[in-house]
Design a protein around this nucleic acid. Structure first.
Lengths: 131, 131
DNA sequence: GCTTGACCTTCCAGCCACAGGAAGCCCCAT
DNA sequence: ATGGGGCTTCCTGTGGCTGGAAGGTCAAGC
């Protein structure tokens, strides 16, 4: 398989696939002409990576997940620990965004949004009690 | 005021303040020795920027907000529109994270997390129906 | 006067996870 | 032979800083 077919089937841009090879996440073979030669197992790994990235795991976490996936003697506890740690990160990020959302929507609600210059959003940002 | 005092009072690292000058968000004067000389108005702007950044506005949005803040003839509608657009972005990001959270917590719940290798998290990532 | 140490300056590199684009090779169809 | 699409590598840029090196400046203490 050439890179474009793999890209379509894995749902990843070709650029990303080259990057993943560069950082050692995959090691596709090469054809005589220098083109990358992807096997089904490479495709499979790329799809795995795409889904892990889609769940917000970092590249290094993906590397670990992939290693665990290939290690048939792994303990599921290791995978679970990684996933739970990531869930905590996600929760923290959501909480942070929700705090922004609350503050900002309060300011937006208070703003008339007309042609006049008076704006509680700007005064809120200018005043220390905002966040 | 020298940079460190401003940094403490604005709650921003000195590095960030230098960066904000570099990209033209602030224009502090200079002392004879080359040190930056911050006025109260600079401090005020920096605090404004810190709060806007804390609400998740991008640097370019902050630039616009600052311009609106300084434009005494602004229409509050312009500020409100910017803030509302940003709220939409925040909402989208929260929704995305919540989708990750749902999928991942389902997988985590299904995983025994013991010494055995069987792991629904890994099979979920390896199987196309995951996300 | 001299040293010390805390400040300040500029400049350069690195972070993450790619994306864009240039320059050039390869392959197939016409 | 030519054209067009695919493939390759390499370099640069993104956002918003952060860390560090190399060197100038200032006030306090001896």
């Amino acid at each position: 398989m050439n890179i474009k077919e793999v890209a379509v089937r894995a749902g990843l841009p070709a650029k990303t696939i080259r990057y993943y090879e560069e950082i050692g996440l995959i090691r596709p073979q090469r054809q005589a002409n220098g083109y990358r030669a992807f096997r089904e197992s490479d495709l499979h790994k790329l799809a795995f990576l795409g889904r892990a990235r889609g769940l917000g795991f970092s590249i290094e976490e993906c590397r670990t997940l992939l290693a665990l996936y290939e290690d048939k003697g792994r303990a599921s506890a290791d995978v679970k620990a990684l996933a739970e740690a990531h869930l905590v990160q996600i929760g923290a990020k959501i909480a942070e965004l929700e705090a922004m959302q609350r503050t900002l929507s309060d300011l937006v609600t208070a703003c008339a949004g007309d042609h006049r210059p008076d704006c509680p959003i700007l005064t809120g940002l200018a005043t220390s009690g905002c966040c």
